[in-house]
Design a protein around this nucleic acid. Structure first.
Length: 424
RNA sequence: GGAGAAAUGGCAGAGUGGUCGAUUGCGGCAGUCUUGAAAACUGUUGUACCGUAAGGUACCUGGGGUUCGAAUCCCUAUUUCUCCGCCA
């Protein structure tokens, strides 16, 4: 959520940036918020004035009672009736207008960084780096969904029986590969200075709100109605919410956390080749990295995070590219996002395996995640996160790219984690 | 799940209707002393909103109520602790 004060003081800038995100009716919405804000401040002044008067009278009555001047006290009490009435009215008016403002603000997306390219569709994203060579596969290569069956790594049908489509059962070397990747990712992240955390994989409503999944995207999360808990769509939610209602010392920034969790997504509305095999699942595993950063360093940190993830892909020897997302393809809360995509050779397509974003104060404003700066002033920190990495598509690319007539070759870096060099 | 107790500032812990935004201790910050540090001493130390400012308003787990006035009384929700039950 954008800060009202910021909108008020930088209206032109906000509008300019919202245009990059193709946010419709930005001018109308922003100006209505600003009008409501003027009204709100006027009402608050009236409210405060009435309350101040009432407080004074209450104190006077207290004094009179102490001095035993009951009659005078009774007279003063008579005066308070009118005040109480208008106090109540003002309070209600204020609450109403604050809710109105809030309801509008939650619908306004984050303002993109000025370097974000304009554009509406993924075609408008900018490729900033391509790395590795796309492998030439041998005659008779197959997509991963055939390989997983051939080598008995994943049983999709069994998952359907147990839970439903999109809940695969990993078996044998398939299961071991999962575990290997998780450990590899966590080891690399901790070596990079990220503190590993193991958060709950369900969150309450407040947490969903804090990182922006609620109120908008609740249809994308599994909900346990009896206990009012949401299954997390990403570890970003519980980990970032660790810092909800927290004021940290500047010296403790940046805070770097990583964590492995399963992720659950309802993926309502997905279909076709996008959901085939491992391409899109309802449950998948991911290691997430999260940073709480001082504003002046957040963009440098974003690049570090992006490059760190790229480093993982290099170690895994996967061909990949990095995209800088255009305004139209960025998520609601992000100010700048890099997507990392690996090339899945048998499918002949790029698969998104990581999304690294700077949210600036968009999340921390909701979270009330702040720090004291050098001058002792309290201000909002920036929050950033990225996948490092999501497993299924990595597995898909590994299987497809590394297939050979003899079997699937495990990248060197994973061999110690897997305990085998080839899947055959 | 049953019975009981509790929830106060970064922490500990006072405060049961009227100058209480809240005693005190610890911690933090600044200073004095010291070659430096420690100790001791002195001062300072919550958040948000409104206001150019002076200042004002709100917040003692959340919500509602009683009252001229609520940290304090009542209702309610949540959470925590103790005991019992169940259980990885």
């Amino acid at each position: 959520m954008l800060q009202l004060n910021y909108i008020r003081e930088n209206t032109a800038d906000v509008l300019k940036r919202l245009a990059i995100k193709n946010f419709k009716d930005a001018e109308t919405i922003i100006s209505s918020v600003l009008q409501l804000d003027v009204k709100r401040r006027a009402i608050q002044q009236s409210t405060d004035a009435v309350k101040a008067e009432a407080n004074i009278i209450a104190k006077q009555i207290g004094m009179l009672m102490k001095e035993g001047k009951k009659e005078e006290a009774e007279n003063l009490k008579l005066k308070t009736g009118q005040l109480k009435q208008s106090e109540k009215e003002f309070d209600e008016e204020l609450a109403t207008i604050e809710k109105e403002i809030h309801d509008i603000l939650v619908q306004v997306p984050n303002t993109p960084h000025l370097s974000v390219p304009a554009g509406k569709t993924p075609e408008d994203n900018i490729t900033i780096l391509e790395h590795g060579t796309i492998p030439t596969l041998y005659e008779g290569n197959t997509p991963h969904w055939d390989l997983t069956t051939k080598y008995n790594l994943i049983d999709f049908e069994l998952g359907v029986k147990i839970a439903g489509a999109g809940f695969p059962v990993y078996k044998g070397k398939g299961a071991r590969l999962q575990r290997a990747l998780i450990n590899f990712f966590l080891d690399r992240a901790t070596a990079q200075g990220y503190l590993e955390v193991q958060p709950p994989i369900v969150v309450n409503e407040e947490s969903g709100y804090g990182t922006g999944q609620l109120p908008d995207k609740e249809g994308q999360m599994y909900f346990i109605g009896e206990d009012k808990l949401y299954l997390i769509p990403t570890a970003e939610v519980p980990i970032t919410n660790l810092y909800r209602d927290v004021i940290v010392k500047e010296i403790d920034l940046p805070i770097k956390n990583c964590g492995y969790t399963p992720c659950f997504r309802r993926e309502a509305g997905s279909y076709g080749k996008d959901v085939r095999g491992l391409n899109r699942l309802h449950q998948f595993d991911k290691v997430e990295i999260v940073q709480i950063a001082p504003p002046e360093k957040s963009y440098q940190i974003l690049e570090e995070m992006r490059d760190y993830v790229a480093g993982l892909l290099k170690e895994l020897e996967l061909p990949f590219r990095i995209l800088k997302l255009c305004g139209g393809d960025m998520s609601f809360g992000s100010a700048l996002t890099y997507d990392l995509e690996v090339y899945s050779a048998a499918q002949s397509r790029w698969l998104e395996v990581s999304s690294v974003s700077n949210f600036e104060t968009f999340q921390t404003n909701r979270l009330k995640c702040r720090y004291k700066d050098g001058t002792g002033k309290t201000q909002l920190a920036h929050s950033l996160n990225g996948s490092a990495l999501a497993l299924p598509r990595i597995v898909a690319a590994l299987l497809e790219n590394n297939q050979s007539p003899k079997g699937i070759v495990i990248p060197k870096v994973l061999v110690p984690y897997c305990g085998f060099e080839i899947i055959d």
